[in-house]
Simulated scan of single mutants.
Amino acid sequence: MTDLELAHALAEQAGKVALAIRAAGLIEGKPLGAAGDRAVNAFLVPAIAQHRPDDGLLSEEEKDDSARLDKSRVWIVDPVDGTREYGEEREDWAVHIGLAIDGVAHTGAVALPGLGLVLTSDGASREDHAPTGKIVVSRSRPPAEAERVATALGMELVGMGSAGAKAMAVVRGEADAYLHSGGQYEWDNCAPVAVAQAHGLHCSRIDGSPLIYNRADVSLPDLLICRPELAEDILGAARQG
């Protein structure tokens, strides 16, 4: 399999694992989120090791191995992104399978199992969507930068669950931008960024600097994914304050 085929297969099958655990109806709430995370990770880690034994791995649910820092190719995965939404039996959660090459988000697949979708970095489903005037943000803590952007550009803030769900809302044309600040890690956005870039979207930190992966410090606290024609205005408005 190519990297893209592998990423797609892993994301799709991981989503099925998570859905099966939830459908059993034997665990609820936070314990369900934790169980789903662990089970999906237990599937992904050996699968990646078997198909790409020479590559590095960074997973939210796996003890970090510093050997990855010497690797050019590193798989960066989030088994269940949005465990709260998953545990609440919502649809806005995701599975992230990303591959960073030389620090750049290169290949990605984001599964939205609740919607029966897997979006990938092949760009084959790329479409031109009409502007919506919407910015997707955290359900519980919309960033001040997003509020400034919405005020300055006359846009509407829409709360949504996981990072992957929000990023894919922009890819799918349901929103014009996804803006986040206040804390994320590489596994939260590597796969979504790979997919978004392949669909022609702007992806950067909110100061406009590039997103760099496979670092010793895996914190990547802020992110902008948006329609390319809006990037300059959004970045400018976000910096005001």
Rank of each mutant, 00 (worst) to 15 (best):
H199E: 07
H180F: 06
A146N: 04
D122W: 07
C190F: 05
A175D: 08
Y178G: 00
L157P: 02
N189C: 15
G208P: 04
Y185P: 00
D188S: 12
D176K: 02
D207V: 08
G154M: 06
I212D: 04
E145L: 06
H180K: 13
V218N: 12
R148F: 01
L179F: 02
V193H: 02
A152F: 08
L223Q: 05
V193S: 14
Y178A: 01
V171A: 10
V149T: 02
A196G: 07
A150C: 05
P221W: 11
S125G: 08
W187M: 10
G154K: 09
L201G: 01
G133K: 07
Y213C: 03
G123V: 08
V149H: 03
R139F: 08
A144K: 14
T132L: 10
H129Y: 13
K134I: 14
Q197T: 15
Y213V: 06
M168W: 09
I206M: 09
I206Y: 01
D188L: 04
G116W: 10
R126I: 10
H202D: 03
V171H: 09
A198N: 14
S125V: 02
C203K: 06
M155R: 11
V171T: 03
L211N: 05
S209A: 14
A152Y: 08
G183A: 09
E145D: 11
L117G: 07
E147K: 15
P221V: 10
L157C: 10
A198V: 05
G200I: 06
G208W: 09
A175L: 02
G208Q: 00
M155P: 02
A167E: 07
G200T: 07
S121K: 06
R126E: 12
A198R: 13
V218E: 14
P210S: 06
V170I: 10
S140W: 13
G182N: 13
A150E: 00
V158G: 01
T151N: 12
Y213N: 04
Q197A: 14
S204F: 09
D128V: 15
A152N: 06
E127C: 11
M168Y: 11
G173H: 10
I135H: 02
A124N: 14
H202M: 08
A175M: 04
V193Q: 03
L179P: 05
S138T: 05
N214G: 12
D122H: 08
R126A: 15
E127S: 13
E127R: 15
Y185I: 14
A163D: 09
D122G: 13
C203R: 03
A130G: 04
D222V: 10
V170E: 10
G161H: 04
L153Y: 07
K134F: 09
N189P: 01
M160I: 02
R141M: 11
A130S: 14
V137Y: 01
A146S: 12
L211M: 12
E127Y: 06
G182H: 11
G161Y: 06
S209L: 12
V218M: 00
A194L: 08
A194V: 13
T132Y: 04
T132I: 03
C203N: 02
A146I: 01
